[in-house]
Amino acid sequence: MSVQPVRPVQSPIKRTQWTSIGGGRVPSAGQVLTYAVLIGLTIVVLAPVVWAVLSSFKTQSELAQRPPALLPSSLAPTNYTEALSSFDFGLYLQNSVIVTVGATLLTVVVNTMCAYGLAKYNFRGRDVLFLVVLGTIMIPLQLIFIPVYQMAAQLGLVNSLWGLIIPPAATPTGVFLLRQYMLGIPDDLIEAARIDGAGEFRIFARIVVPLCGAALAVVTIFSVMWRWNDFLWPLIISQDPEKYTLPVALAQFNSQLSVPFNYILAMSVVSMIPVVVIFLLLQRHIVRGIANTGFK
């Protein structure tokens, strides 16, 4: 692994076009089929979402109507205004944003570092550590809920936004993804930099990280949507209403005896918007980033 004949580095840098299976021109029958499949699936994917958005304007009795009507009787935003006014939406939005941004930054930084350590160094205990990481991916919070909470309580993280940012930050999934990705980066690149006298951290920050664009984007998106929709953990960590995130605030409507779906739908639509927007922005960025630099 360490000493190998130096191969010409296979060149990340100069690609300007997208790969596609066929590369060249695609026969038009295939093209048509592709569109047919994609449009068909788009309908399957979008129909329920669109229906949910439309339904968010319905009243409770309209929602109960059987068979359900496709369109709401009016587009008056009553559900939105009533649900929004019944709690401090601005504050919860702010909390959600702080937690999502903070946790994602932390996740990306610690995960990338850890993945690099595991992927590109040979050290005692590496394999065991990696297996532990891998092993813990499959522990859902549901299973170890109370021990985790006790730990957070001992460290004084309860009822603070830090408690929402730090404990879930070391996502094993992120480490795993990034490590798998980094395995593909040629060791020669790193060795070459060492020979040029670059420090270990510098190599990491200046050479490795820029090469991981797509994987980082995936981890970022993953973390954003995860933290944004996170419910169970914030529910026990945020005890004062001032510390609630959106999903927790939203769930207050869930009562014992009847659930006002009209409010829940309206609030879900509202809470969905920011993630979709982030994805739209990031998606463009990923596409452009990959197209320009053509990493790897």
Partner: peptide, 13 residues
């Protein structure tokens, strides 16, 4: 490199 991640990880997972 692995320290910060493993610390959080050890404590909370």
């Amino acid at each position: 490199f692995i320290l910060p991640n493993m610390l959080i990880f050890g404590l909370f997972v």
